[in-house]
Simulated scan of single mutants.
Amino acid sequence: MRVKRKRHEQGLKITDVARIAELSQGMVSKIENAQVSTSLETLGRLCDAIGLPISQLFSDYDRPDGEAQLTKAGQGMEVVRRGTDKGHTYQLLNYHRDSQKNYEPFLITMDDASEVFPTFFHPGLEFIYLLEGEILYRHGNHLYEMEPGDTLSFDAAIPHGPEALKKVPVKLLSIIHYDD
């Protein structure tokens, strides 16, 4: 299929490729339609004729079978955390289903009814990325003015959280990484 697709991209007919590769038209057609096994030498000539590196024919060979978890926009699981009673909404964007929890990604939203709560603490390292709004964020004795696009990473065992919601709504991506 890759040979056929590349031939079409090049605007070549089977007769053109057969002539350049010094193969019969029937052989080119059978190779394109996976109706014949052929030698690497023949494949090499065919690939040279259409400008396709032969290695691309085997790029899918022995590729590991991957599996990822997709969470569609707005479909994350809403969870209750310590800030929920302060008006902070936590949407868990992804999670592992095995016994070892390495990280938790959250979309956290706050509005004008949300309260500030700069004394969160929990195990792990946390990374936050401000998507929307403006916030004054506390980590220990330090205050950080954050605007959309700003990031902050810190030891989550030290008290932290929003000191002031300067422009609402606030949306931030929070990824908590737990030690093994």
Rank of each mutant, 00 (worst) to 15 (best):
A49H: 09
E22P: 01
E134S: 15
E147P: 02
A34Q: 15
L173T: 05
L165V: 10
R45K: 15
M110F: 06
P64N: 14
G26V: 15
D62V: 05
R138M: 00
K72S: 07
S29N: 07
L172P: 01
L107C: 13
I176S: 02
A18Q: 06
L70P: 08
G74N: 01
K72H: 08
L40N: 07
S24D: 05
F154P: 00
V79N: 00
L40A: 06
T89Y: 10
I20K: 11
S37E: 12
F117G: 07
R138D: 02
A113R: 13
K72L: 04
E163L: 01
S29Y: 06
Y129G: 04
Q69M: 14
F58W: 04
Q91F: 05
A34F: 15
H142Q: 13
L152E: 02
I50S: 09
T119C: 10
E132V: 07
R138W: 01
D65R: 13
D180F: 14
Y103T: 06
M110D: 01
P123V: 12
F127C: 05
R19G: 03
N102A: 14
A156M: 01
N94R: 09
E78G: 05
P148H: 09
I20P: 00
T71F: 02
R19Y: 09
I31T: 13
V3W: 02
L52A: 05
E132R: 15
R45S: 07
P162L: 09
V116L: 06
V28L: 12
D60K: 08
K4M: 14
Q25R: 15
L43D: 03
S153C: 08
A34P: 07
Y178I: 03
I50L: 11
K101N: 11
P169A: 10
P64E: 12
S37R: 12
D60S: 13
K171M: 05
V79P: 01
